[in-house]
């Protein structure tokens, strides 16, 4: 694969973030996988060990596939993350395992990472390999709620919120302040065009914590993070899975995210989400993961084409409901983007 039909132009994505009509269909993904990168570039992603080589290959794949940007996971860029105990990993992980903070003592003795000590050099180096017109989009090392759950464990956190609210608040603040600093630093780089705040807030039926708790513990930090991103002239995309309909007004009016990513047919199909919120926030991706995995390529192209017609590429970029992990068949993924690139 060595040709794309149109030149990269990050401004097309900017039009989407501003809920304007793009000049052509625009693609968006949160992240994709090494097997797909290998398939597209003809090189072996797994054999690469140098982060810059990986970034070069990821960038090449995003370019060839027709994107106007490349997402680079923060682990390649910074080395800044919150460390918990080991989580066993299969196809999913438990949100209750690996906790390292369970009381005031363990909170105070935790080895908190220092965002300023991360290495951000690659955000400068990447400028030399970015094709003209492309920018970098950087997700965080997990979000405020995700990292607190990672450190405390979900069920323990639920009890802590009621039984030791001061400690819970202090943990949220310790995580939030460090993530804010991370986003302030990363959004200041010229190579970066937008940032993804990746923080899952919902289960299938409702938010993981009550909207009231989210408003007290989580959202104030997210609001500051979006403000920091906007101060640097960049755009803020919220990637948050689950049913968060009850807090969409907070996301749009209070936190002022530019775009919302992650949709599921079992919760709110993306077509419905666009009708409900598309005039107030850009809608990204949304082709349901289950649909993407289990449908035929023709069915996928048809649905992707339909949503491009429905939205007329005004405030909407085509992509999956979540990401492209290795279990998404390559032909199904290609069938989805074909609707935009044909």
């Amino acid at each position: 694969m060595d040709k794309r039909r149109y030149n990269p132009d990050f401004n097309q994505l900017v039009k989407i973030f501003r809920r304007e009509k793009a000049d052509r269909p625009v693609l968006f993904e949160y992240f994709m996988n090494g097997e797909l990168f290998s398939h597209i570039t003809g090189l072996s992603f797994e054999e690469l060990t140098d982060p810059m080589d990986k970034i070069r290959m990821i960038t090449r794949a995003f370019y060839l596939l027709g994107y106007d940007y490349v997402t680079i996971p923060s682990r390649y860029l910074t080395g800044f993350s919150f460390e918990a105990a080991g989580h066993e990993k299969k196809e999913t992980v438990s949100l209750n395992e690996g906790a390292v903070i369970n009381d005031r003592n363990s909170f105070e003795s935790y080895n908190w990472p220092v965002p300023e000590e991360g290495s951000y050099r690659l955000l400068e180096d990447v400028t030399g390999i970015l094709p003209e017109g492309m920018k970098v989009i950087v997700p965080g090392p997990g979000g405020v709620l995700e990292n607190v759950i990672y450190l405390v464990g979900f069920e323990s956190l639920c009890f802590m919120i009621f039984e030791d609210e001061d400690l819970a608040k202090d943990i949220f603040d310790a995580v939030g302040a460090r993530l804010l600093r991370f986003y302030e630093i990363v959004s200041s780089y010229d190579s970066v065009g937008a940032l993804i705040v990746n923080d899952d807030w919902g289960f299938k039926n409702q938010t993981m914590l009550s909207p009231d708790t989210l408003r007290r513990m989580v959202f104030p930090w997210q609001k500051k993070i979006v403000e920091a991103i906007h101060r640097n002239g960049k755009y803020a995309v919220l990637h948050s899975c689950g049913n968060i309909s009850d807090v969409m007004d907070d996301i749009i009016e209070d936190m002022k995210f530019d775009a919302k990513h992650s949709f599921e047919d079992n919760i709110v199909p993306v077509e419905r989400a666009y009708e409900m919120w598309g005039r107030r926030i850009a809608i990204m991706g949304g082709i349901d993961m289950d649909f993407l995995v289990r449908s035929t390529p023709d069915e996928i192209t048809m649905r992707a084409g339909n949503i491009l017609r429905l939205t007329d590429s005004k405030g909407y970029a085509l992509g999956s409901g979540n990401s492209i992990p290795p279990y998404v068949p390559v032909e199904n993924y290609m069938a989805m983007i074909y609707a935009a690139t044909r």
Partner: peptide
């Protein structure tokens, strides 16, 4: 293959 336990619990 699945380690998710919150819903089950």
């Amino acid at each position: 293959g699945d380690l998710h336990d919150i819903g089950k619990n």
